[in-house]
Simulated assay, not measured.
Amino acid sequence: MWRWYFSLLENSQRYGIAWWIQKLLLVFSLFYQAGIRLRLLGYRWGVLNIYRVPIKVVSVGNLTAGGTGKTPFVEWLAKALQKFLPSDYICLLSRGYKQLDSGVNDEYLLLQQNLPSIAHFTGKDRVALAKTAYEQGYRLAILDDGFQHIRLQRDLNILLLDATNPFGYGKCLPAGLLREPMYAIQRADVVILTRVELCPPTSLAQLEETVLTYKALPIFWLKFSLRRCYELFRGTAYTLDSLPPLFAFCAIGNPRSFLLLLEHYQITPLGCQIYPDHHIYSQKDLDKLIQQAQRAGAKGLLTTQKDAVKIQFLRSSFPVYVFELEADLVKGEETFQSILRSLCSSDR
């Protein structure tokens, strides 16, 4: 279903039922954009309130519906901020969308695993979370997925654009993947192009030019590289050339990026199963994946770390290999560090 939907977004149809569905999605997209415009006008005219809290707020978000590599960048950002502030002054704020039975979601589990020393507050009311964090002694909050959360005033507004699909097929949901029109770039203080390792420099230069037509602002490049590959239930590390034939699966906002990553590392899975973003896996899901993999002739499953934190509590004698990524600024890191240093040293 999800592969069919993404195929529908990628390929313009001229006939058949797919053409009619695309036209219907465009109609829904127009209503969606109208709602977005009304909401933005509400904040501009003061009908909706923007709250400023004592704690400094760094927002990290994107224009498209997930899949920009936001979570590994938040990890990188939290570690970068620790050069200028103690870790017990820094915290994370997030919505906690699609929580597991434990009361937290996949992003929380992933960040908790990779950032054990950073406190993480989750809830619908990010303004209340920020106030609570300040009362508990924290002085800087990273607002995860905060670009559209205008209700909370921020000191630095970071916009991530996935270089492999920066503008979500150029249309707003559901006809495309844009959460809001491209002119929203004007609200950003800095733009970071992610997954630059998957794009030629000429494409990145063109993307920079497009961004600068909306606003003159600093643009940085972020790449993702493989930190390690390991088997989930045994913890054993593997080199890429020692991996058996694999069947891939994921439940992330931009599944195409996962397939491009595999291609980048010259891994060709025998099949791939795509689930909706933040899908909560059941034992039945995992058992079905194992059956699919075995029918395809695979000797193991391969997935992302974000998916792995949700299936680590399930049972499997069939190997599940995990790609764990790390982020690295490859263009403008010194300038970006200077921005963070100024933010941390300034008074509210």
Rank of each mutant, 00 (worst) to 15 (best):
P86V: 03
D285Y: 06
V60I: 11
T303H: 02
K288G: 10
A175P: 00
V320F: 07
Q294S: 08
P174L: 00
E10T: 09
K299L: 09
I158N: 05
R341A: 06
Y214M: 07
G67W: 13
S346I: 01
I50A: 10
A34P: 12
K288Y: 13
T132F: 15
R315E: 15
Y15T: 13
L243E: 05
E10V: 08
V320H: 06
V309A: 01
V191T: 08
Q266L: 10
L100M: 13
E10H: 15
L260T: 03
A130L: 07
E10Y: 13
L222K: 11
A248S: 03
V104I: 14
S242Y: 15
Y51Q: 11
L140C: 05
R348D: 09
L232C: 03
F84G: 00
A133D: 09
I185C: 04
G35Q: 06
G46T: 02
Q266I: 10
Q148E: 10
G61Y: 11
R154S: 07
C272M: 05
L314F: 11
V53W: 13
R195V: 05
S242C: 15
S242D: 12
L177V: 01
I17V: 11
I192R: 09
S242T: 12
C172T: 06
S87Q: 15
G235C: 05
K83R: 11
R44F: 15
A130D: 14
T194P: 04
P72Y: 09
K306R: 04
L204G: 04
V74M: 06
T303M: 01
V196R: 12
V104W: 11
F84S: 00
F233C: 03
F313L: 15
A298S: 08
L286V: 02
I118V: 02
I219P: 13
S342C: 01
R154N: 10
D125N: 10
G42V: 04
T335G: 12
A128R: 14
G146R: 12
K299C: 10
W45L: 13
G297F: 12
T68E: 12
L262W: 13
E10C: 10
G66M: 02
W19V: 04
A205W: 12
R187Q: 15
D88H: 13
L325G: 02
S316P: 00
Q153A: 11
K331A: 02
K79P: 05
W4V: 00
